[in-house]
Deep mutational scan, measured.
Amino acid sequence: RADKQHVLDMLFSAFEKHQYYNLKDLVDITKQPVVYLKEILKEIGVQNVKGIHKNTWELKPEYR
Rank of each mutant, 00 (worst) to 15 (best):
A2I: 15
D3Y: 10
K4M: 04
K4T: 06
K4G: 04
K4V: 05
Q5E: 11
Q5P: 07
Q5G: 10
H6W: 12
V7L: 12
V7K: 01
V7W: 02
V7N: 02
L8A: 07
L8N: 03
D9C: 04
D9V: 06
L11E: 00
F12D: 05
F12A: 07
F12I: 06
F12P: 00
F12H: 02
S13T: 12
S13I: 10
S13G: 14
A14R: 02
A14K: 03
A14Q: 04
A14D: 00
F15S: 01
F15I: 04
E16A: 06
E16F: 04
K17T: 05
K17Q: 06
K17M: 04
H18G: 09
H18F: 03
Q19E: 14
Q19N: 12
Y20H: 15
Y21C: 14
Y21N: 06
L23W: 03
K24L: 09
K24P: 10
D25T: 08
D25H: 06
D25V: 04
L26A: 01
L26I: 03
L26M: 03
D28L: 09
D28R: 13
D28S: 13
T30A: 03
T30G: 01
T30E: 00
K31M: 11
K31Y: 03
K31S: 11
K31G: 15
Q32T: 08
Q32L: 08
Q32M: 06
P33T: 03
P33C: 01
V34R: 13
V34A: 14
V34G: 12
V34C: 11
V35C: 14
V35Y: 09
V35N: 08
Y36H: 12
Y36T: 13
Y36S: 07
Y36V: 11
Y36C: 07
K38R: 12
K38H: 06
E39A: 12
E39C: 08
E39F: 03
I40T: 05
L41W: 00
L41T: 00
K42T: 10
E43C: 06
I44W: 01
G45P: 01
G45I: 01
G45L: 02
V46E: 09
V46G: 03
V46W: 09
V46M: 13
V46Q: 15
V46S: 09
N48K: 15
N48F: 03
N48R: 12
V49I: 13
V49G: 14
V49C: 08
V49L: 12
K50I: 09
K50M: 10
G51L: 02
G51V: 03
G51A: 05
I52R: 13
I52T: 08
I52E: 14
I52C: 09
H53T: 09
K54A: 13
K54F: 05
K54H: 12
N55K: 08
T56V: 10
T56S: 15
T56H: 13
W57Q: 02
W57L: 05
W57G: 02
E58R: 10
L59W: 01
L59V: 05
L59R: 02
K60H: 04
P61Q: 10
P61V: 05
P61R: 08
E62V: 07
E62M: 11
E62R: 08
Y63T: 06
Y63R: 07
Y63A: 09
Y63S: 06
R64G: 08
R64Y: 06
R64A: 15
